[in-house]
């Protein structure tokens, strides 16, 4: 297989008046006149500038996150180490306090309602206690006497 052009023998060199070597000469002819240098350098500067800015921002954000995490860890460690509790009411304590207060308020309200409501009359169908209407005998001490005695005692 021949890799040189035109092929040896020259039988294919002229095809209907066109020299094929002219085609390959035209193909090998460099295309000049366009200079991309400035455009490429401008784009490179812009892209690398943007990249540097993005990297700087990323580094700053990363540093901030690490710093914040470190501070949080140190504070937590100090609190655990010293055994200190958070000052002020905790949420469960506040809930308990509220519950008690509301309970007292409701209790007071119920008591007020009970005091203000009319007393019910004595039940008529209740049988009197045995001996409730009899006079006490001379030997039996009266209730007043007994209570007086008890009071004196």
């Amino acid at each position: 297989m021949s890799l040189s052009w035109p092929p040896p023998g020259g039988q294919d060199r002229n095809v209907d008046g066109v020299d094929e070597s002219m085609i390959f000469a035209e193909l090998a002819r460099p295309l000049r006149g366009l200079d991309f240098t400035d455009r490429i350098m401008q784009r490179w500067r812009r892209d690398t500038g943007r990249l540097t800015h993005r990297m700087r921002l990323g580094r700053w954000l990363g540093g901030a996150i690490v710093g914040f995490a470190a501070i949080a860890i140190v504070v937590a460690a100090l609190m655990v180490g010293s055994g200190e509790r958070v000052s002020g009411p905790t949420i469960p304590a506040a809930l308990r306090h509220d519950w008690n207060r509301h309970g007292q308020t409701i209790g007071r309200t119920i008591k007020s309602i009970q005091q203000l409501s009319p007393h019910l009359p004595a039940q008529p169908n209740v049988a009197p206690l045995p001996g409730a209407g009899e006079q006490p005998g001379p030997d039996e001490p009266s209730e007043a006497k007994t209570s007086g005695r008890v009071g004196q005692a």
Binding site: P30, L34, F36, I40, M41, W44
Partner: peptide
């Protein structure tokens, strides 16, 4: 080195453009 970059571009831009254009 930007001068080196420009030298590389100038050395290869014509051939690359011709190739990609074709």
């Amino acid at each position: 080195d930007e001068e080196a970059m420009e030298a590389l571009i100038r050395a290869h831009q014509d051939s690359l453009y011709a190739f990609v254009l074709r």
